[in-house]
Amino acid sequence: MRDTMLKAIYLQLGAALITAIAAGAIVGTRGLVSVGIAAVAAIVPNLFFAVRLTMLKNRAGASYAANFFVGEFLKIGATIGILAIAIKGYPGMHWPSLLIGLAIVLHAGFIAFWKKS
């Protein structure tokens, strides 16, 4: 499971890089930065979630299911929080780039679970 979680994060990083380069080529710096913000908002909480679940796996007496749902709730909250801070802090946000970048980065992680090898 741990390898699959890290594989998902690597796939998200790759998708973010490709999407940011494409947005930068099409829209310019605003598009590149907007996709970068979306990538950070998606990848950083996922990374902390994966590390947390890996640490809990070795702890005796911890309810994995309960910790999974609490971690998922915190991950969603962190993503929303990072996006809210970024929206207020970067007034030059290019919304289509942000939304497309967020959708691509979030969906890239599912490929790791779909294609196990």
Results as ranks from 00 to 15, higher is better:
V44W: 04
P45A: 07
P45M: 08
N46T: 14
N46F: 09
N46I: 05
N46M: 10
N46E: 14
L47F: 09
F48T: 03
F49A: 14
F49G: 04
F49N: 07
A50M: 00
A50I: 00
A50L: 00
V51I: 13
R52V: 01
R52G: 00
L53D: 02
L53F: 07
L56K: 07
L56I: 02
K57L: 12
K57P: 02
N58R: 11
N58T: 13
R59V: 12
R59M: 12
A60I: 11
S63N: 09
S63E: 06
Y64Q: 10
A65N: 15
A65I: 15
A65Y: 14
A66V: 14
A66E: 13
A66N: 15
A66H: 14
N67P: 11
F68A: 08
F69E: 01
F69N: 03
V70E: 12
V70H: 11
V70R: 11
V70W: 14
G71H: 06
E72M: 07
E72S: 04
E72R: 01
F73D: 00
F73T: 05
F73C: 02
L74Y: 09
K75R: 13
K75I: 03
K75V: 01
K75W: 03
K75P: 01
I76P: 00
I76A: 02
G77K: 04
G77T: 03
